[in-house]
Write a protein that binds this DNA or RNA. Structure first.
Length: 755
RNA sequence: GGGCGUUUAGCUCAGCAGUAGAGCGUUUCGUUGACAUCGAAAAGGUCGGAGGUUCAACUCCUCCAACGCCCACCA
């Protein structure tokens, strides 16, 4: 314990305080039999490395809410956890392997590689949990959860099985976002668009001129599409066939009329590549056109490309253009055309859409919600997942703060397509599906075959045996689906998988729905929306009552922090330098819900504040030793309660008034998620009221025998109340000072001051 | 193409109807007990621009500009 030296030294305090809390086991709500339940789960941190300053903000805000509610007498549960982050983690390990040993996944067996990833995840997890504790997160470690641990895996398998039985999970052949580099598909939300400057080529296609940025995909183009309203092409009829000379000779083209064609763009005519482009795929589906692959899963051209077959698409463009030019088919090249290419945000591979067999969750399919506790949706109602997701927010059962995100949320739901949940990577939950006598990897190796043959194979598959369950089926010849699940499938279950679902546990009854979900707005779609989907669909319950979305922490230049930019700030560095309390207070002090630039100056200022509080305490303690020695509970309050108002000096009355005000303000602010306002209020009170005014006044009062006794009580009272009010924000220093007041209690479970 | 956010002191940000605020920085002064990680004082802003509503606007409304973010099937 730190002596009463002039300067507060956080390094001597924080560890001890953490140990004290841990010893008292107060973060486990099983110890507490009364109080209304209040549960929050910490957003599970990805095991891709260490926590960054953004996580520190999450922990700070979340822990403030938790400590505040705990002091208010709620039966609080705060659950820590980590997320395996499937693709992100695997990509990370692959990148490191390549960097260090020039090895790729293919140099290992599935098991060997998986082991490497698991090892990495385990290390990362240990670091993260340590960081969480140092940040002062008052979580119940006995309930620690990991998305890939046994209990959560059971939850995932059960969820899959139930959704499958509800026919909300289905297997289908669709155009998906294929990452040739990682050899997996990713969901729509995992894609990032990057601007690229390229040539825009115009080619002669029979009587038409078509424009494209990607000549290398055009080999199979046998449909030419235009808007039915385009008068320039009235003479051509839908379905009309014409012979055109194309890259590798003559082909029969069919004219298609479709509204999606923008008459203003290019020549108002385009050919389509349905197997590798979402728009084209939709057109082909609408008109029942052939869908023929041109590119294989590694990004190389298929035999349809003739002399170019086998070459990688990134390398053949110029050769193809050259050939077209020689044939007189190239009419014009427009340079410096800016367009957007899709990349996998988790691994940075360039997305090449492919048609693949994948598992999906149907969001527009009505199903029977057998059991519902959702207001306005009776048990047994027929609803779609989208309808449920919309309803719970529309009806106000889930409140989103700040409110502007409600609109964003609805917009996302309205545009939402079936969620592709299967991934072709090894790290993650294996899909609990087994097949017998089936070639379930239809996509690979079959691209040389004609559509008809592929369709026949697919039809055959339907007749084959599929088993969905938790345990492997009995009997011989069963093979488990090789794919794993999207990482958000498991984190979507987080509000209840952490409480022991699918078992009907006491925790589940007590703590679900959670009270508040606190996270950055950047994962509103990825995570928050998916939790709503899963909880409503599987439990017939909302996952939480309130969603509080905070802004992102950026670097001093307002840049998003990322490893590649090298502008990541490790919270541990900041904590070592200024103290955890100062960091927490600084992060929360001036964020009004928008992004903020992180500057160390702010933390420095809050370290000064911690020191100010320390010296305020030193003054009060050293001047009230006799009063402290009596060690009576609530002595100050009793003493004050019995004082007639006229026995108080003006300074006494003023500080009491200010204390009352700041208590009321802070309570209201925290309840309404205005943490910046709350922190400013207590800062102002401690420094500019208590220290600047009352302590100064008390110096004279303490010398006056008639006033001394009362002044001591009042000083102590103000200090104690301030420590309580400040505790959620600066848990370490406040607990430490509380310990010096000979109270023999822990501040963390003291009662929150009443107004 | 839609939607959203930001624009307030040198820097980072609060405030959001009633004569402009904080932290850091800057300038001047202050050496003996709570604190120099301090105290006292000071400089510094026509609150992005233009209209409007109002007794009164940084705060509400409209338009504009710059920057940023999200969503979208423009080849």
């Amino acid at each position: 314990m730190q002596e009463l030296s002039k300067t507060y030294d956080h390094t001597l305090v924080e560890k001890d305080i953490n140990a004290k809390w841990e010893q008292a086991q107060i973060f486990n709500p099983d110890q507490q039999k009364s109080g209304a339940p209040f549960c929050m789960v910490l957003p599970p941190a990805n095991v891709t490395g260490v926590l960054h300053i953004g996580h520190a903000l999450t922990v700070a805000i979340q822990d403030i809410i938790i400590r505040f509610r705990r002091m208010q007498g709620f039966r609080v549960l705060h659950i820590p956890g980590t997320d395996h982050a499937a693709i992100a983690t695997q990509a990370k390990v692959e990148a490191e392997l390549y960097k260090k040993e020039k090895k790729t996944q293919r140099d290992f067996s599935r098991e060997e590689f998986l082991k490497l990833v698991e090892q990495y995840a385990a290390n990362s997890q240990a670091t993260i949990l340590n960081q969480l504790q140092q940040l002062g997160a008052s979580v119940d470690w006995s309930r620690l959860a990991y998305t890939l641990d046994d209990k959560r895996t059971l939850a995932v398998q059960t969820a899959f099985k139930r959704l499958f039985e509800l026919e909300l999970i289905y297997r289908g052949s669709r155009l998906v976002n294929w990452d040739p580099k990682l050899q997996t598909n990713v969901s729509d939300d995992e894609i990032e668009w990057k601007e690229e400057t390229t040539n825009f080529y115009y080619f002669k296609y029979g009587p038409f001129i078509i424009g494209t940025t990607r000549p290398e995909t055009k080999f199979g183009d046998k449909y030419v599409v235009m808007n039915p309203k385009d008068s320039r092409y009235f003479s051509y009829k839908h379905g009309q066939k014409i012979e055109v000379e194309w890259i590798n000779g003559s082909i029969t083209a069919t004219i298609i009329k479709d509204d999606v064609i923008d008459m203003e763009f290019g020549t108002g005519v385009m050919t389509i590549t349905p197997a590798h482009d979402a728009t084209d795929y939709d057109i082909a589906k609408r008109h029942g056109l052939d869908i023929e692959p041109v590119i294989d899963l590694r990004g190389c051209l298929l035999p349809i490309a003739g002399e170019f077959a086998g070459q990688h698409i990134s390398k053949v463009r110029s050769a193809i253009v050259e050939k077209m030019q020689k044939k007189g088919l190239l009419t014009r090249v427009e340079p410096n055309y800016i367009h957007r290419i899709a990349v996998n945000s988790r691994g940075a591979g360039i997305i090449e859409p492919q048609i693949r067999e994948q598992w999906f969750i149907a969001v527009d399919k009505p199903f029977r919600l057998a059991h519902s506790e959702i207001a306005g949706i009776p048990s047994g109602a027929e609803k779609t997942l989208k309808q449920l997701m919309r309803h719970v927010v529309e009806s106000g059962q889930i409140k989103i703060i700040p409110a502007r995100f409600v609109k964003t949320y609805f917009h996302w739901i309205d545009n939402l397509r079936d969620w592709c949940i299967s991934r072709q990577i090894v790290f993650g939950h294996k899909i609990p599906v087994w097949y017998r006598n089936v070639n379930y990897e239809l996509g690979i190796g079959n691209y040389g075959k004609k559509n008809q043959e592929i369709n026949e194979l697919r039809n055959q598959e339907n007749k084959d045996e599929i088993y969905v369950g938790i345990e492997a089926p009995k009997g011989n010849g069963w093979t488990q689906d090789a794919d794993t699940l999207d990482t958000w499938f498991s984190s979507g279950l987080w509000t209840f998988s952490t409480l022991g679902w699918p078992e009907n546990t006491a925790d589940l009854k007590l703590f679900h729905p959670n009270a508040v979900m606190e996270t950055g707005y950047d994962i509103l779609f990825f995570w928050v929306a998916r939790m709503i989907l899963m909880s409503c669909g599987l439990l017939g319950q909302i996952p939480f009552q309130t969603v509080y979305l905070h802004g992102l922490v950026r670097d001093a230049e307002r840049q998003k922090m990322s490893k590649s930019k090298g502008n990541i700030i490790d919270p541990l560095d900041v904590m070592n330098k200024y103290g955890t309390d100062a960091l927490r207070f600084a992060l929360v002090h001036t964020t009004g819900g928008t992004d903020m630039a992180f500057t160390e100056d702010r933390v420095k200022g809050m370290k000064y504040f911690a020191n100010k509080l320390w010296n305020v305490s030193r003054f009060i303690i050293s001047n009230t030793l006799d009063a402290l020695a009596k060690n009576e509970q609530n002595q100050e309050q009793n003493a004050l309660a019995n004082k007639p108002a006229n026995a108080l000096t003006t300074a006494d009355q003023q500080i009491m008034e200010k204390l009352k005000t700041v208590t009321a303000e802070m309570t209201r602010d925290i309840e309404n998620f205005r943490f910046n306002s709350a922190s400013q209020a207590i800062y102002q009170f401690v420094w500019h009221e208590l220290a600047d005014k009352y302590i100064e006044a008390s110096k004279a009062q303490l010398k006056d025998e008639a006033l001394a006794d009362n002044t001591k009580h009042l000083l102590l009272y103000c200090l104690k109340q301030s420590l309580k009010l400040l505790h959620p924000f600066m848990p370490f220093i406040t607990e430490h000072i509380w310990g010096l007041l000979q109270t023999n209690t822990l501040l963390v479970i003291e009662q929150w001051p009443k107004e």
